Computed example of a mutant assay.
Amino acid sequence: MPVRLYIGNLPKDEVDRQELQAVFADAGSNVTTKVIKDRKTGKCRGFGFVTVNNDEQADEIIEKYNGYMFKETPLKIEKALPRNKGQEEEDQAPVASSANTGDAPVSSNAEKSGGNKRSGKKPRRGGSAGTSTGSSDAEGIRPDPRWASELEKLKQMLAAQTTNG
C-alpha cells in the first residue's frame, strides 16, 4: 500500500519537482515526488510530498533524509496525515468522525446551500442559497472592521431621521 511522506522546510524560492526527485533517487525508482506551489506566484510553498510503496521504505527514507540539507535548509520528513476528500493537502483540518458514519444526521454548509461545491466553506454573501434574513441572523453578522465606524454613523443618521419624521 502506498505511503505518503510530508517533506517540510523546503526553500520558498524555485524548487522543481525534478530537483526533489533527484534527492530521493537512490531510495529507489518507485519514489514519486510532488512540490506544492502557490497558485498565483508559482513559487514553492515550503513543503511537498513523497510517495513510496510501503511502510518499510517510508521508515528508511525518514531515517535517512530527515535533516538532509537541501539548498541550505534541513528537510523535515514525516508520515503525512491521511487526506480528506474535498480538501487540499495544505488545508487538512480534523473532521468529526461521526459525521460520515450515519450515527448522527449530517448538516453541513454544502447541504444547506443546495449542493455548494465549495465544501467546508460558508456560502458567499448575496446569494440566495437557502439563507434566511431574520432578526436572529442580523445579530450574528458583524460588519467589516474597516467600515464599522462609518456604518455606526449611518445607523445614527437613520435613527435620527426615523425619530424626526
Rank of each mutant, 00 (worst) to 15 (best):
Y68M: 03
E63G: 15
F24Q: 04
D59F: 00
R39H: 14
E63D: 13
E72C: 01
E63Y: 08
T51K: 11
T32F: 02
K71M: 12
E60H: 10
G48K: 03
M69Q: 10
V52N: 01
R39W: 11
L75K: 03
I36Y: 06
K76W: 04
K76I: 12
I62C: 15
K76L: 10
K40M: 14
Y68A: 05
N54I: 07
G48P: 08
R45M: 15
G42I: 15
Y65V: 05
T51E: 15
A25F: 09
F47W: 07
M69C: 00
R45I: 13
G28L: 09
E56G: 05
K40L: 14
K79E: 07
E63I: 02
K43E: 03
T73A: 09
V35Y: 01
F24E: 05
D55S: 13
K43S: 07
F49D: 08
M69P: 01
P74F: 06
E56H: 07
E60W: 01
A58K: 02
G48C: 10
D38W: 13
G46C: 09
K64G: 02
V50I: 13
K34V: 09
D55E: 14
A25I: 09
G42K: 05
Y65T: 05
A27V: 04
V50F: 01
G48S: 06
I77E: 02
K71A: 05
A27L: 03
F49V: 09
D59Q: 15
G42H: 09
K40R: 15
D26G: 00
I77T: 01
E78W: 00
N30V: 08
S29W: 00
D59P: 00
K40D: 12
N53K: 07
E56Y: 04
V35T: 05
A27Y: 00
I77D: 02
K43Y: 14
I62T: 06
R45Q: 15
F24T: 06
K79N: 04
E72A: 08
G28F: 07
C44V: 07
E60T: 13
N53I: 08
C44H: 02
G67L: 08
K64V: 13
D59N: 14
Q57S: 10
K34Y: 10
S29Q: 12
T73L: 13
N53D: 15
C44L: 04
K64I: 11
T73V: 11
G67P: 10
G46P: 08
G46I: 06
T41E: 09
I61E: 01
E63M: 11
Q57H: 10
C44K: 06
D59H: 09
Q57D: 14
T32A: 10
I36E: 07
A58W: 03
G48V: 11
D59R: 11
K71T: 03
I61Y: 01
I61C: 02
L75E: 04
T41A: 14
V52D: 05
I36F: 12
I77L: 13
R39A: 15
T73W: 02
I62G: 04
